[in-house]
Simulated scan of single mutants.
Amino acid sequence: MQQCVPSEEIDEAVKWRHHLHQIPELGFEEHETAGFIAARLVEWGYSVRTGYGKTGLVGTLSQGTSSKAIGIRADIDALPISEQTGLSYASRTPGIMHACGHDGHVSMALAAARTCSRLNFDGTVHFIFQPAEENEGGGRAMVEDGLFRDFPMDSIYALHNWPALELGQCVARDDQMMAAFGTFEIKIKGRGAHGAMPHEGADPIVAASHLVSALQSIASRNVSPLQSAVISATQIHGGDAWNVIPEDVVIRGTTRWFEEDVGAKIEARIRSLAMSVAAGFDCTAKVDHLFRYPATINDPRCAEIVRNIASTMPGINVADALPSMAAEDFAFMLREKPGCYFWLGARRPGKNPGLHSGYFDFNDDLLPLGTEMWVSLVDSQLKAI
């Protein structure tokens, strides 16, 4: 399919992106963002329904007589990170910024929706704007609120800008794309004491220090070397004074895996190690582990569709890459419907801050490529005969 999005509309989409970048909102709080999206969709003739996952919305356009339907998802939330870019369109909200490119994802989906409103296709396209992708499970919330009940579709697709790949490289694997994700909190309780008289207490800081090291043995000694597992302690909190051994220490972190049995083994071993290590220092441990997101697994047929489209598009080339141990709650949607989650390379020349950096900014050079990918997907899957 030849380029069909006018350059002046791409320029306008860049302006949308810069506007959205200035008004970042955290998960389930994206009211202004959702309002901006809905206004554009209504203007182009889409039927818009709100309230899915609190602040999520769906824009639907049907043409012809076919029952075929596809979904295109864009995530809309920002992160609790202070922006350091110094851009003229930097975040206006202290401590919150679009550090993952969701402002660009929204703008590409909106630009594609605008073009699709003029496209001659046969069937239905649902543009799904999802809240709270970052940690809070907005994808799950939309599914639970009846996304697929109210909007029947044959397949669903999502993309993510990927700064680690060269601009325009497209990775759509047949299977694993992103890992499953869990969080843990371990509360170690000891007996406080004077720092000069540690023998009179039970030191939870020493126990916590040994436990953080022991947790690393799970991936190396309890999980097969042919499987993937990551356990990262990311927080330790305890103590308030220089000369006081505290009563309690809290360790928090994340777990990552692909196979469900590995996730179960990680949880079991965290509990076992926490109890035994704490006991070895005359302390006790309480463990809370939450399974947050499942692994993001593509449907091979849908992944092939994406690769076939990418292979015909100027500026995009199909590439291969290993899956990421980061997580993505589009996984909840892929558990319900066949679909494909893919990456589009967004590397910048020179300095190239990664995702979730306070210096990150979506690469606007990717915007026309992503827009054309979405338009081509609608055209290929809902082609009018």
Score class of each variant (00 low, 15 high):
Val318Tyr: 03
Arg49Ala: 04
Val244Tyr: 07
Ala180Asp: 01
Ile188Val: 15
Arg149Ser: 14
Met373Arg: 01
Glu336Leu: 10
Arg307Gly: 08
Ser311Gln: 14
His21Glu: 02
Glu260Ala: 04
Ala180Gln: 00
Glu267Trp: 08
Asn161Asp: 09
Val212Tyr: 01
Gln176Cys: 04
Ala321Ile: 02
Gly190Ile: 11
Ile316Phe: 11
Leu87Ser: 08
Ala13Arg: 07
His98Met: 11
Arg92Ile: 05
Met325Ala: 14
Tyr341Ile: 06
Glu83Pro: 03
Asp282Met: 08
Asp364Ala: 13
Leu355Gln: 02
Phe281Gln: 00
Asn243Trp: 04
Ile188Glu: 06
Leu61Arg: 00
Glu30Phe: 12
Val277Thr: 06
Glu260Lys: 10
Met178Gln: 04
Gly345Asn: 12
Gly138Tyr: 00
Ala219Arg: 11
Leu87Gln: 07
Val250Cys: 08
Ala264Thr: 05
Cys170Thr: 15
Ala295Met: 11
Gln216Phe: 05
Ala207Thr: 07
His105Tyr: 07
Ser232Asp: 03
Ile81Asn: 14
Glu30Val: 14
Gly35Leu: 05
Gly138Val: 06
Asp75Gly: 06
Val58Asn: 04
Gly104Trp: 00
Lys15Ser: 01
Gln63Asn: 10
Thr60Gln: 10
Arg335Val: 05
Gly263Arg: 08
Glu166Pro: 09
Gly350Lys: 15
Ile231Tyr: 01
Ser324Gly: 05
Pro349Ile: 03
Glu304Met: 04
Asp145Phe: 15
Leu290Lys: 12
Pro80Leu: 06
Leu167Ala: 00
Val244Pro: 05
Val212Cys: 11
Ala13Phe: 02
His21Phe: 06
Gly345Asp: 10
Gly146Pro: 07
Phe258Lys: 03
Arg49Asn: 09
Ile10Asp: 04
Arg17Glu: 03
Asn243Ile: 03
Pro163Gly: 09
Val318His: 01
Gly137Glu: 00
Thr296Asn: 06
Gln2Tyr: 06
Ile385Ser: 15
Glu144Arg: 00
His21Trp: 03
Val106Ile: 15
Glu32Ile: 10
Leu344Asn: 12
